[in-house]
């Protein structure tokens, strides 16, 4: 394939007091792909994720975004580059309405976010755009509902809408289907497929059936290092991956789903 690399890590390493959580990871994410990061518990997926989104500083190694190093940047700065992350536990602003949740993401571009002397009514013209985004994830009727009162699956959808408000070039999703019932999982899978058009997605995911349905490319981590990389068929056929997952049913189950 000739697609360009959008995100790349070189020798990415994270040590916590002598324990190496992430060991010399070289990850390459191509533009336009839905790329999954999978691996058994404790493989270092979330740590890699936090390193990429600058929520943790790496011990060694480099992170490049479109060929430019972003290793030294702060978490809020990379969001401004268009790299926006989600969280494992749904990250919403609980005591704000769904509309306000999205609007707070939209308002950053106005450049008035430090203006404490202006009325919040100056934000009202963002409401239409916020509604469009809510519509896109099927939450129009929740616009005026306080987020704390929304069901879990809807909160995750709201999170996606909030992320889309930033018009990200790349979305980093941390276990988007975690803790969900089957119905919600299907809805989120569809949603991710839809919003991934024209974007790059890197996701950490436990649910292999989700991965098999969505992802163009998969990186398997085990004990902090890259074990295998490729499309779903080749990765799931890899005996080392099967061994890492112990008992290998998980992989087969996912393939047949």
């Amino acid at each position: 394939m000739t697609q360009e690399l959008i995100l790349e890590t070189r020798g990415l390493t994270k040590e916590f007091r002598g324990f190496t959580a992430v060991d010399d990871v070289n990850l390459q994410v191509r533009e336009g792909h839905i790329h999954a990061l999978i691996g058994p518990n404790g493989a270092g997926k979330t740590t890699v994720f936090n390193l990429l989104t600058k929520f943790l500083p790496p011990t060694r190694g480099e992170i490049l975004y479109r060929g430019k190093p972003i290793t030294g940047m702060k978490a809020n700065e990379i969001a401004r580059l268009g790299l926006v992350r989600s969280f494992q536990i749904s990250a919403v602003f609980a005591h704000m309405t769904a509309l306000e949740n999205v609007r707070v993401a939209l308002q950053r571009r106005l450049g008035t976010s430090f203006h404490f002397w202006k009325s919040e009514r100056t934000l009202d013209h963002l409401n239409d755009r916020a509604m469009e985004l809510l519509d896109e994830v099927g939450l129009r009727e929740y616009a005026d509902v306080l987020t704390v009162e929304m069901p879990y699956g809807r909160k995750r959808a709201l999170e996606v809408a909030t992320t889309l408000a930033l018009e990200p070039t790349m979305m980093l999703l941390d276990e988007p289907t975690q803790g969900m019932g089957a119905e919600d999982v299907d809805r989120i899978v569809e949603l991710i497929r839809r919003v991934a058009r024209g974007r790059t997605v890197l996701m950490v995911e436990h649910n292999l059936s989700v991965v098999s349905r969505l992802c163009d490319r998969i990186t398997v981590l085990a004990r902090g290092a890259v074990l295998a990389e490729g499309d779903y068929a080749s990765v799931s056929a890899d005996p080392r991956v099967r061994e890492a997952y112990m008992g290998s049913e998980a992989v087969e189950e996912g393939a047949s789903a």
Binding site: N76, A91, V92, A94, M96, V104, T112, S113, H115, E120
Partner: peptide, 28 residues
């Protein structure tokens, strides 16, 4: 006015969920 301003909205967001506010690009 501060509480009900564009700034107040961001402040509220930070209070509700600081990491998320960071991930939206705000220098909290």
């Amino acid at each position: 006015r501060t509480v009900h301003s564009p700034y107040g909205q961001v402040l509220k967001a930070i209070r509700e969920n600081e990491p998320r506010a960071v991930s939206l690009g705000y220098n909290v």
